[in-house]
Design a protein around this nucleic acid. Sequence first.
DNA 1: TATGAATGAGCATTCATTCAT
DNA 2: CATGAATGAATGCTCATTCAT
Lengths: 231, 231, 231, 231
Amino acid sequence: MSRRAQNRLEKERRILEAALRVFADHGYRAATMDLIAEAANLTKPTLYQYFPGKDALFTAMLNVPRERMLDAFEGDTTRPLADQLHDFAWAYADTVMRPDFLSLARLIIGEAQRFPEIGTAYQVSGPDRLLDGLIAFMEAQRGAERLRFDDPELAAQDFWGLILSAPRNKALYEPDAVPDRAAVARYVHNGIAVFLRAYATDPQHDIARLAALIKQHDASATASAGPNPIA
Amino acid sequence: MSRRAQNRLEKERRILEAALRVFADHGYRAATMDLIAEAANLTKPTLYQYFPGKDALFTAMLNVPRERMLDAFEGDTTRPLADQLHDFAWAYADTVMRPDFLSLARLIIGEAQRFPEIGTAYQVSGPDRLLDGLIAFMEAQRGAERLRFDDPELAAQDFWGLILSAPRNKALYEPDAVPDRAAVARYVHNGIAVFLRAYATDPQHDIARLAALIKQHDASATASAGPNPIA
Amino acid sequence: MSRRAQNRLEKERRILEAALRVFADHGYRAATMDLIAEAANLTKPTLYQYFPGKDALFTAMLNVPRERMLDAFEGDTTRPLADQLHDFAWAYADTVMRPDFLSLARLIIGEAQRFPEIGTAYQVSGPDRLLDGLIAFMEAQRGAERLRFDDPELAAQDFWGLILSAPRNKALYEPDAVPDRAAVARYVHNGIAVFLRAYATDPQHDIARLAALIKQHDASATASAGPNPIA
Amino acid sequence: MSRRAQNRLEKERRILEAALRVFADHGYRAATMDLIAEAANLTKPTLYQYFPGKDALFTAMLNVPRERMLDAFEGDTTRPLADQLHDFAWAYADTVMRPDFLSLARLIIGEAQRFPEIGTAYQVSGPDRLLDGLIAFMEAQRGAERLRFDDPELAAQDFWGLILSAPRNKALYEPDAVPDRAAVARYVHNGIAVFLRAYATDPQHDIARLAALIKQHDASATASAGPNPIA
DNA sequence: TATGAATGAGCATTCATTCAT
DNA sequence: CATGAATGAATGCTCATTCAT
């Protein structure tokens, strides 16, 4: 790749990063091209040489972070069920609760009404793809007779809803009070336990294993009272 | 109250309703004072006599809809557990999935970064208050030895996450593809069943009762394959 | 008409006049809305409350001067032929050679390529309508056996071409050297004479009458050498 | 001339041609330096190395096309009068009604107010020079006692006005409805006839000869009803 | 010499807000 | 108290012009 082209790509990335920051901080309308240009350390006309307009920049910007979220999880499916769910849950949580991803999510939700394609595109390329991985995982575990259910999609959705819906909702509504990792752990660990209790073929065994993992994970001590159904 | 004051209050309400519509449809920035004035059938200067500015109108507007959502549920706690959960779930679902509430939610989430009080206020006055009711309910059921858990808040959150997180997330991101009642039913009914399986002291009995309720509810036929852990 | 409406109409006229000045002086692109607003003694947003945009203002402006040009001539067709042609010619010349109409014509011609409707509209509503009057006049004179020809439209065009094409062309190309009334008279008087010579049934009589009119007209002395075919 | 200099000159010509196209198509303001550079197949900075700015390029461009129009007519003055007028008229018409010359004329007229030298220069170098040829021709014919008049300039202008003012005016105002050759022929042939009728010493003879020429010219059939004063 | 990249200045348009009536 | 009219301050976008290479 030529020096020129490299430089151009690098600047394009700089613009996209600046755009993410500015859009996320101000919302679509309040994010002015001037602000973005300034944040990217260049002038407006230069900005316009890289992207033909605000909408284009916005949509282009939304395609950047997806990748990082995509390969969130590919595990060794022979490991203990609790271990895999634990890893999966944290991989997801650590992505989804990152401040920049939360900002982006707020932005997309806020503009979904007027940019319907964007919301759909994001949903399809982000959460939906992750869900597919989760569904595949669920089916594999059912095949291995570790989980029991009829509808793998519902199983996957239930897992998600149990571990992350509460902290994520709070985070979406209260940017200043995004739950810290300890607070998230409370929901995540509880969610895994409840999921195992409802879905596992051998809940007691898996929950015991989970408890060990949690103790390990909480070496740095959370005050959480432990997952809910201690059975 | 004098005639004058009454008139004033009524007009204020009209403004707030118009503001809700316009803000929800266009977003904060794209909602112009002109549009709001027109929607309220008055002129801009009059608008400014009722509210000192756009921000003030916005925040004032957000305090209106709370009430409707509040008294969402007050049930007879002696009825069968499955019946109560079923009613609770649908009361919640029917509120939360209404297009206007979804619009409002998108609006608040979208502006949460720049109006942090708003997000918090909404969270506290809306979802949190509902959650309180749910927590109280959970504790009552635990007292009656129908449910078993340590942390009632987690139980409540789990219930919410199981029945509504999936369709609501989709609805937030895709305004054009808000799940219809049948689609919501799939999640809600499954969620209740999974919840009972994980939390009920006598899951089999409650789930059987739930199945009857669902059959009744689905008199008008949903294609849903039934809740997940049919056990 | 209410005071308000009257005021509004008057301001609208003020804007249109300012627009004519500014557009004519600078051309379409170089005429900024700021300049027009300033010339009309108001601010840009006010301007936009009267006209929705630059294009609209431009086209609206083009509909104003037409009227003045329309009823340019309605004469007593029983008067001597030379008298009527003389009056007609000067009515036309005095309109068409006015600096503001010349500016407008330059403007329209200059923008005709990108605003094709405008050029057509102007042609139809201005020159073409005048031509219709001239054609009717020619036919009347043919009926009275004072003129002789087959095609009245060609007769009308010939008249126009003879009296005004030369000074008007010069004026269009050289705004700083617009022929003065004396210079125009040279072409107009010559043109009438040549026209009579080619078209009149009794040229000698009509041209003699014309010579008298010219002498009268030139009481204030032009240096013009008289019309061409003194015969 | 060195290879270098030759190359430079050739590129300069390419730029000027591109400029003519772009200016004529878009008008002065809407013709961007980018467009011109692209049309000339080079980059903007190179453009600026040949011409110091837009204005300079514009004025330079206007000095190019003159020559083509110059040598429009040099005839054998001993041929029949009608033949010579016919040839002259068509040579002029075919030049003046060419789409590119019309575009250029519109451009110059449109910018005449802000570039006064341009209009004058064009007038002097284009039409005026042609007029000089025409005047000389008229004088020669007067010397040969074929035409009769006092003022040769007026005679020349009358000829021009009779044959071309109508179609050219229409063409200037309506780029989308430029008269085709048949439509122009109607005016041209009529104009020559009228001119002969007013100016020729032996009109009948010349008009008869003209009629033959027209029949020949219209081998491909025009629907025109013939020139006006068939006498 | 030629070019990819950059920029200062401007322009059409909009909006929250304020007067004069 | 209500309104038609007005405005200062942006905002997205463009363009003639200039560097650095």
